[in-house]
Structures are given as C-alpha cells and as structure tokens.
C-alpha cells in the first residue's frame, strides 16, 4: 500500500492528458467563442456519442469512430449552413439531439456488459491509457501547428468573412480546415471530460481569458494556461474529495472565469 503522498500512475496519466488537452483547447476555443459557435461545439460533442457506440458495435478503434462521425457532422454543417432555410441554431439543435438519441439507442442495442453510459457522458480521465496520451500529444501538436498556419486568414474571416474573401482569403477551405481540427479535438476530449462537458473545455477558458488579454494571440495562450490550471485543480479536488473528475475540472474553469471577471473590472481598457 502506497502512502497518501504518492500519487498512483493513473493520476500521472490524467495530469498529462488533461494538460495536453487544455493546451489545444485554448486557442481552438478562442475561435469558437469569437465565432459564436458554442452550440456548434455542443453538436459535435453530442454526435460523437454516436461515434463511440458505432465503434463499439463494429469493433473499430474508439477514436476512429468518433473522429469519423464528428468530421462528417462538421462538414455537413458547414455546407448546410451555407444554404440553410432553417435558422442555424435550430439546425444545430436537430442534429445535436438526434445524434445523442441515436447514440443512446445504439448503446442499448449492443448491450455489451462492459459499456458504461455515464462514463461516456461525463468522461473518465482516470481511465486514460498510454495510447490515449499519444493521441492527445501527437494529434494535438498537429492540430496546433495547423491552427498556427491558418491563424491570420482564420482571424480575418472571423472578423468579416466577405471582406476576407474579397482580400483573397480562401474562406471556404480555411473554414473547413478549422472545423476539421475542431472535430478532431472534440473526439479526443470526449474520453476525458465526456460528451456533455466537452464544449466547456473550449468556451470557459477562452471566456475567462477575455478580461485579462489585450490581443487575440494573448487570449489564446491565456486560455490554454487557465484551462491547464483548472484541469490540475479539478484533478486534485476529485482525488481528495472523491468527486467525478470531468465535472470537477469544469467547475474549476467556472471558478477561474468568475475570478478573472472580478479581477478584470479593475484592468478595464
């Protein structure tokens, strides 16, 4: 029996996974907030439950199924929104909940003894494997690098898409690439914070960073830092008080949001 002061291996893996995720989620989440795509992120996350259950049913790697479904939904949405007759949020609501419902139905149909619905809804960072960590850091680095490469055109189209297009930005291609990166992040994050809480990882750190950042790049980095702090805080809290880890992390982010909001009032620009 190890003492209380020595943390077991799974905690070490959880810290690594959560930290990596926070770094990728910060800058990506900043764009989610700037483009008012919170509901879009939610839709990707809810639909990824369908990805999870499909991978279980067809016995393929979990990440393959989730990335596949999230990517399909993301691309569908980008095209759909271009010529939509329905309001964007209505469309998202339909897809989001249909995805969630189909996921839950598939889950009940396959009836595998080992499947734990709550685990997918709330995530389980403590069950992260070495392979998952490889996914997070390998895929995460590629995602961040890609985001860095399209940073300026993406920011330009976030500010005004038509203006960016007139100035020669390939708006459609950049948007697709961004959404693909987002789908990938959602897919790896689902395992850690769960289907229901993924969007918070994207939105809350970015929103918290707003009050203390003076430029877009600064906000993105601060969102990463704040996200990382919240992940660590959540892990510590959940370890010592035995509460679910994903929700504890989200509460940590919310706490940081409140703190920077109070602090930010003094810095007012």
């Amino acid at each position: 029996m190890t003492g209380v002061m020595v943390w077991p291996d799974f905690i070490g893996r959880a810290v690594l996974a959560g930290t990596g995720l926070a770094w990728v989620a910060g800058p990506l989440g900043a764009f989610v907030v700037w483009q008012r795509m919170a509901y879009f992120g939610d839709t990707l996350a809810h639909a990824s439950l369908l990805g999870i259950t499909l991978s279980l049913a067809f016995e393929v790697h979990l990440s393959v199924g989730v990335v596949g479904v999230a990517l399909t939904i993301a691309i569908l949405l980008v095209y759909w929104q271009r010529q939509a007759t329905l309001a964007s949020d209505t469309l998202l609501g339909i897809l989001s909940h249909t995805g969630l419902a189909l996921g839950l139905i598939t889950l009940s149909l396959i009836r595998k003894p080992s499947t734990d619905v709550l685990g997918y809804l709330y995530g389980d960072v403590l069950a992260v494997s070495n392979e998952d960590i490889l996914w997070i850091y390998g895929g995460g680095s590629v995602a961040l690098l890609l985001l860095l490469l399209i940073w300026r055109p993406l920011l330009s189209l976030t500010v005004h898409a038509d203006l960016a297009a007139v100035e020669g930005v390939p708006v459609h291609r950049i948007r697709l690439l961004y959404v693909a990166i987002l789908a990938f992040l959602v897919a790896i994050a689902v395992k850690i914070v769960g289907v229901l809480l993924v969007t918070s990882m994207l939105i809350i750190p970015a929103a918290a960073a707003r009050r203390i950042a003076q430029a877009p790049g600064q906000l993105a980095v601060m969102a990463s830092l704040l996200g990382m702090l919240a992940v660590w805080g959540g892990l510590i809290f959940s370890y010592y008080w035995d509460v679910p880890t994903g929700p504890a992390m989200v509460c940590g982010m919310a706490l940081l949001f409140v703190l920077t909001t109070l602090l930010g009032k003094k810095v007012k620009y």
């Binding site: 907030v33 700037w34 483009q35 008012r36 300026r152 920011l155 330009s156 976030t158 500010v159 005004h160 038509d162 203006l163 960016a164 007139v166 100035e167 970015a206 929103a207 707003r210 950042a213 003076q214 430029a215 877009p216 600064q218 906000l219």
Partner: peptide
Amino acid sequence: KIGYMPQKLQIDATLPLSVAHFLNLT
C-alpha cells in the same frame, strides 16, 4: 485590386482587437 468596405462589421465582444491589428489582417 479591390478595396471593399462592408455594410456592417460586428466583432464579438470577446475578441480583443485593436484598430492597428484589424488593419494588419490584410
């Protein structure tokens, strides 16, 4: 080369963007 001035510009309040930075997007 076209210079375009759009009808409206709505930048989300969460995006900290200075005038100089805005001009530097092109």
